[in-house]
Amino acid sequence: MLSPARAWREYPQRYRLEASRCTECGKISYPPRVVCPGCRGRQFETVTLSREGTVVTFTVVHVPPAGFEGQAPLILALVELKEGARTMVQLADVPDPSQVRIGMPVRLEFRKIAEEGEAGTIFYGHKAVPA
């Protein structure tokens, strides 16, 4: 489970989908990196990702981990956004996992991701939903 402080540090990427574009080779990294995995460059500019993409691959978790118990079957998908950046997200609003297909268009929506019990903080971020 996330700590409130760690979640707070990651708000730019979790809330606003801010990624880093390497000023040397142009590669977009999401979440943002300190060193570019493409050319080892260290200069970046911030770009905001679009919220449209496609499912690259996915898996269905029938016994979800702690904190996600009530969400079975939980669908995890690797989604490629329009800019080419890939992100692992939950696929929501799909009542039947057999409807999910590789290549299906999705869009990212702001959703509640997890909470630290009834008294703790609530973590927000993005999930993919059928476009």
């Binding site: 969400q71 939950q90 609003d93 929506e109 702001f110 959703r111 509640k112 999930k127």
Partner: peptide
């Protein structure tokens, strides 16, 4: 609302 939808989302 789904489990992951609230006033904020």
């Amino acid at each position: 609302p789904g489990k992951d939808e609230d006033t904020i989302t």
